[in-house]
Simulated assay, not measured.
Amino acid sequence: MNPYFKLSEAESYVFYKVPKALFTEEKYNPVSTDAKMLYGLLLDRMHLSAKNGWTDKRGRIYQFFTVKEAQEKLRFGHEKICRLFSELEQADLIVRKRQGQGKPSIIYLKKF
């Protein structure tokens, strides 16, 4: 089997997109690479929220992405995932609205 990609295979893979601005703009320097990856996951899921019609009265798209789901995707522990979500909030990249006991937070993804 040939271990190299061929031209016909170039678009046959799905990728997560992480905005370049998160790495080039100085205001995002304090944000860890892991938090930037979490933002990329949230950005990827935004189309699903739009497809489901998950918008609020102001037309803002929101999503549900639990700590457990983030743990499964990124392979980090509970405390680290909570820290990553907090980093994104502090960097003004997301807003989380808590819904109450046992319900996932509503997450609004903000533009970078």
Rank of each mutant, 00 (worst) to 15 (best):
E69K: 09
P3K: 12
Y62H: 08
P30F: 09
I94L: 05
F23T: 01
P30G: 07
K51I: 09
V67W: 02
N2H: 10
L84K: 02
Y16F: 11
L84Y: 12
G59A: 02
E26P: 03
Y62P: 01
Q63S: 13
A91W: 01
V31S: 01
E72S: 13
E11S: 10
T24F: 03
E89H: 03
A50L: 12
Y28D: 05
V14K: 13
N29R: 14
Q90P: 00
F23V: 01
S49E: 03
Y62C: 04
R58L: 13
V95N: 12
P104S: 07
Y16Q: 05
A91M: 03
K111Y: 11
G59Q: 03
M37Q: 12
Y108C: 03
K17W: 11
Q63D: 04
G102R: 10
S49N: 08
M46N: 11
A50T: 12
Y16A: 09
A50D: 13
K20I: 11
M46V: 14
I61T: 14
F23S: 09
G53Q: 09
R98H: 11
E69A: 13
Y39W: 10
G100R: 08
S32W: 01
P19G: 07
R58N: 15
S12M: 14
A10R: 15
F85K: 01
W54V: 04
Q99A: 06
R45V: 00
G100W: 07
V67H: 08
G53T: 03
T24D: 13
L74F: 05
L22V: 02
R75P: 01
F23R: 12
V14M: 05
I106Y: 00
V95F: 11
F85V: 02
I61P: 00
V31F: 02
Q101F: 07
M46F: 02
D44C: 06
K110Q: 14
L42V: 07
E87I: 05
R45D: 06
G40P: 04
S49V: 09
R60Q: 12
F65T: 07
Y13M: 11
D56V: 04
S105C: 05
V67T: 14
E11L: 11
L7F: 13
L93S: 07
N29M: 08
L38R: 03
L93K: 04
P30Y: 03
F85R: 01
L42P: 02
T33H: 10
Y16K: 10
G102Y: 01
L109V: 14
L38E: 06
S105R: 06
W54F: 11
K111T: 11
V18T: 13
K20A: 11
